[in-house]
Computed example of a mutant assay.
Amino acid sequence: MPVSWQRKLNMESNNAFIKLQESANGRVSVKLQKNQFAKDGAESFYGRVERYTYSTQNILDAMADAIPLVDLGTVASVLNAYAGTVLKVLSAGNAVKFGELGIFYIAGKGSVDNENGKPKLTVKFSATQTLKDAVQNVEIAASEYAAPSGLVTSVTDVATGKSDGNLSASSSVLVEGSSLKVGGEDSGIWFAPVAESGIISSDESKWTKIETALIYNLPSKLLFALPQELESGKYKIVVRTRYAGKSGYERKYLVEAISETVTVA
């Protein structure tokens, strides 16, 4: 490695890492959600910070600006080599100190059913106080309550493999998105008729519910057969669920996800 590169990194004998620099305070947005496990019925909320992720290219550009005497290709090579070395050291069963930021370490995941069992392993990160301090002055630019909701991102006709909004009668349908797994009282999947204006019929007695067993019933994926009695027409698929994750906890309220308009023909 060239001497000039070592100088620019300001390497220390014990951790050899880029020295952290002070930067302007950033801003984030926070979505508040109700804490369903609050004690004694007291109302409280927890915040989820909306994540904006720097890409590898963003990081490379920022590093190139910080060390202008080194070309971008060299920066990329060093970054890739560092990542590869971290993976190699972790796969050998070791923890890895990540400079002034923290430590990657191997931890047990989940439980086992006997004293001789072997738990699954995962990787965790323990942040240093330096890293924790770095975010203390980040400004919360917006904080608002967001009721939990599901999301339908695509509806695919399994017979044709197309996600163009057209469904073949008596075919199977793949619905993808998030928070879709059906579970709990009053949950289910319905085809709700859509008027010319694009509005769903408010008369739920006219909705057609999927009564057959679901082939896939996952948080991100639902697969089921169209009911034979479903007439040709325009619909929106409505998913309602109380499922709240692997904990088995059932929400006190229904989470709803609604698709774009689909045409059954």
Rank of each mutant, 00 (worst) to 15 (best):
E50T: 06
Y253R: 06
L167A: 08
G110M: 04
E260Y: 05
K88R: 13
E196Q: 07
V255T: 15
S13D: 11
A107F: 08
G188S: 14
K97R: 14
E231D: 12
V30E: 13
L218P: 00
G177S: 02
L174R: 06
F98G: 01
A169Q: 13
T241I: 03
Y82I: 11
E115K: 13
K19L: 14
S126E: 09
D164K: 04
T212N: 04
A141K: 15
R27W: 10
N137R: 05
Y82L: 12
K252Q: 13
D157K: 00
R7F: 11
Y243A: 13
S170I: 12
G245C: 10
K8M: 15
L20C: 03
S172H: 03
P219Q: 10
S55F: 00
A64H: 07
I103T: 05
F45E: 14
T261F: 03
E185R: 12
I59D: 05
I237V: 14
S220Y: 09
N114V: 07
Y145I: 15
S4K: 15
G248L: 12
E50D: 07
D40M: 13
Y54I: 06
I103K: 01
V262N: 12
L69P: 03
S111L: 10
L167E: 07
K132Q: 09
T128M: 01
S55E: 00
S168L: 11
V175E: 13
G93R: 01
G150I: 01
L131I: 04
N25F: 09
G188I: 14
P219M: 10
E176W: 01
A95L: 06
L226A: 07
A257M: 05
Q36G: 02
K236F: 10
V158W: 08
L223S: 14
G117I: 09
F45P: 11
E196N: 08
I199D: 13
V75A: 02
S126Y: 05
L121G: 09
L131V: 03
N217E: 06
K246W: 08
E231Q: 15
K34Y: 03
T153P: 00
V86D: 04
N114G: 10
F104Q: 05
S168H: 05
T122D: 09
I215S: 12
G184P: 05
L72P: 04
T130G: 00
I210N: 09
P227K: 02
A244V: 02
A76Q: 11
G150A: 02
E144R: 08
V262K: 07
S172D: 12
A42C: 03
L151Y: 01
A16D: 10
S126N: 12
G188K: 14
K120S: 15
R242I: 02
L223I: 11
N58I: 05
N137M: 08
S77K: 12
L131M: 06
N217H: 02
A92P: 02
W207E: 08
K162G: 00
P119W: 10
K34P: 01
A38M: 07
R51P: 01
S170P: 04
S111E: 15
